[in-house]
Each structure stands twice: as C-alpha cells, then as structure tokens.
Amino acid sequence: MAEDWLADVRKYVADADETVVSAIVKYLGIALRNRDSSLVSFTDTKETDRVRENFLKKKLGLTHDDATLDAAIAGVGEQMKGDRTKNRVTVYYLLAQHFGLLTLFGGAAGIGAGAAGAAAALAAAGGSDDDAGKDDDGASAAPLAAAGLAGAGAAAAAAPSVAAAPAAPPPPAAPVPQTAYSSGDGGGDGDKASGGMGWLPWLLPALLALALLFFGLRYCSKQEAAVAPATDEAAISETVTPADGAVAPAAPAAAIPEGAGVVAADREGKPMLTIYFDTGKSVVSNDLSTAASSVKAYLESNPAATLAVSGYNDPTGNAAANAELSKNRAQSVKAALETLGIAADKVVLEKPAEATTTGTDNAAARRVEVTVKG
C-alpha cells in the first residue's frame, strides 16, 4: 500500500519532523502493509485500549492514569474527526507530540511541544465520554491539563540546560490549565474578594516545577537503565533500525495478543513464529499469511532447513482434552503453512516435552511455536 505518511502527518502538523515520521513507520513495520491495521478506529474501545496500553504506556513509558491517557487519545480522535482515513502513523505522531516525547523517535527536544499538544487536545476533546453532558467542565478538563504539564516536563528533561534548572518560569502555554480552574466556586472570603483566583499564580509555577523535577529524574533513570522500548500491536513484529555505527539493542519481547494473533521474532539468529489462539479454539489467525514471509524466505535461502511445529495449552480444564487441543492447534498451523506455499515435507510436527505451560499468563500458554531446524 503506497502511502505518503509524512504528507498525512503534515495535514495536522505543518512542520512535522520527517525523521520522527520515518522512525514511527519503521517502528510499526509490517502493520502498515495491511489496510485495517494501518488505521485506528476511535469508536472501537478495544482498539483505543491497545493504543493506550501498548503505545502510550509501553512504548512512550507514560505512567499517567487511564482517564488522562484516554482523554489524550480522544483529543487526537476529535482533531482527526474530519479525516475519513485515520492513519496510525499520524495518530502516533500526534500522541507523541502531545506528551512531548518526539525525542524518542529522534525528534528535537522542546518544552513547547507537550504543552501545545495538550492545549490542542483539551480544546478538541472537551473531557472524556463519562463526563459528557455534565456541568462540571473543570473536572473533565483537569486530567488533560495535567497531561500537558507532564509532557512539558518530559520534553524539558531531554535538554540538559532545562533539567539543571527545574524551577524555571512556566512556558507561554502554561495559562491553558487556568481555564480548567477558572470555573471553580472560589474559596473563603479572601478568595471571593479577589475573584477566587488569588492563589492561582502561585500554584501553577509550583506544579510546573514539580512536574519538571519529577520527569527530569524519571528520564535520567530511564537513560541509565538503558531500557529497550516495548513493542506495540499484538500481531505485529515492530523494529527500529539502529543508527549507523550504533550497537543494536536487544530485541524487545513482543506483546502477546488478547486471543488469536501471530507474532514474528528471531531465535538464535533464525526467524520464528508464535501463533496464539482463543480459549479452547484451534483456528489460526489470518495474520499468519503476512507473518510467515520471514520463515518462507529463510527456507528458500536454506534448502536443507525445515520447520518444527509444536503445540501448547494453558493449565486450565481437562488434561486429556488439553493434550488433544495442543495437537489440533499444531496440525492447523501445519495445514495453514502448506496453504501458503510451504512444502509439506518442510513442516514437521514436533511434540514438546511439556505441552501444558504453567507459571505464565494463560494467553501466552495458548500457542503454537514454529521454529527453524537446520
């Protein structure tokens, strides 16, 4: 699917960083080859939950509460509501900009990015769905305003000069949260005499200073720990190409899908596939047709190699039924691989020593592993 990702992003951010867009495209990898997975449906709560958990929390490393993160996602959806095709690259760019974390994709550091993104999302979203129709606008706007402060703090921490002076005066965008507080009823008599806002000029600099300090320390801690970024979509193998001369980080653990899905990865320098299943099912996900390209290419380059297919199950239910289910899942994957053009004599069913996986999440246990032999 030919797509000018940069042009689409620049419909919303005129000076969008081409380096950042390219990095996001590489991060998403094969997801962009499929029309459905290259778009984001803001009306599908399961989809927006994945964006929150996999991109905002795992990739960007955000620790905000779910309401704040959902408000940011809704804000981007509102911003793009006039666009029939809501491209995933553009959605991720706008979210990273909103939280001031374009630097994770090679963008330039800047305090204004997070605060400006928060203001735009706040104006567009108008609070979460749960707050719709209520009179208390301050309650619905506050989480997103806080997200703006947090985004500004994270971006400022990337610049040494700002991190060294956490008590710097607030940026020009700081007045945005003032709107969220201005609808309050006021406090005691002294507040009423001054319009209920006498305390606000002191509160905002204090909040901003705390945000800068907190995220500055958190950013430094992340840098020292050298934690590799987490992957995103469950059925997608996403990698980021290291810069020339740089040492490639260790491959991150792929996210396990909720139910059926396929994850492509490498094991000891050879491609492998992990096919996950719904509870009690042996139906192979359609994602296999795309993910299997890596093992097909390896077999073509290494004629002596074969594929070992091993089925597993979770520990719940009847042991005999589970053993049969593991075998059926392995047979279904073998048949699917043959349908994709891999010769039958290249796909060998291999019963594992222990088909029932314990001590891990049940979703991770319901799987079939396809590994290269030879």
Rank of each mutant, 00 (worst) to 15 (best):
A124F: 04
I73G: 02
E53T: 15
K86G: 06
D130Y: 08
G106H: 03
D136N: 15
K57N: 07
D65Q: 09
P143I: 00
A121V: 05
A113F: 02
A113I: 07
E53R: 12
G112F: 04
R33W: 07
D36C: 11
D70M: 02
D65S: 09
A31D: 14
K81N: 06
A116N: 05
D49C: 04
G106C: 11
G77D: 03
R52A: 06
Y93W: 03
D49K: 05
T68C: 11
P143Y: 01
A67M: 10
D135W: 14
A121S: 15
S140I: 10
Q97H: 15
A119V: 07
G127F: 01
L32E: 04
V76P: 05
K134A: 09
T85V: 12
G117N: 01
D70K: 01
F99Y: 05
I73P: 00
D83K: 11
L69Q: 01
P143C: 00
L32A: 03
A96D: 06
G82W: 01
A109L: 09
D66C: 07
G110Y: 02
A147D: 07
A123Y: 00
G138L: 06
A124W: 00
T90E: 10
A120H: 04
V40N: 09
D135V: 15
E47H: 05
K59L: 09
D131S: 15
A121C: 10
G82I: 06
Q79H: 11
L149P: 09
G117H: 04
A113L: 08
A72S: 10
A67I: 10
G110K: 03
D36G: 14
R33F: 09
G148C: 07
L60E: 01
S37T: 15
T103Q: 08
A142C: 13
N87D: 11
T45H: 07
A67E: 13
V91M: 06
V25S: 08
F55L: 10
F105K: 03
A96Y: 00
A116C: 07
T90M: 06
G148F: 02
A146R: 10
L144T: 00
G107F: 03
G110N: 02
A124I: 00
R33H: 11
D135I: 15
K57L: 01
I24D: 10
L102F: 05
I30P: 15
E78F: 00
A139L: 12
F55G: 14
S41C: 12
I111D: 13
A108H: 12
L102E: 00
L56H: 05
D137N: 13
L94M: 07
F99V: 13
L94C: 11
K59S: 15
G112I: 04
G61C: 02
K59V: 15
A120Q: 13
K58L: 12
A141I: 14
G61Q: 05
G114R: 02
E47G: 12
V76G: 02
G127V: 01
A142L: 11
S128L: 09
A72F: 00
A109T: 10
S41F: 07
D130W: 09
D44C: 00
A67K: 10
G117C: 02
N87Y: 04
A108K: 15
A139K: 10
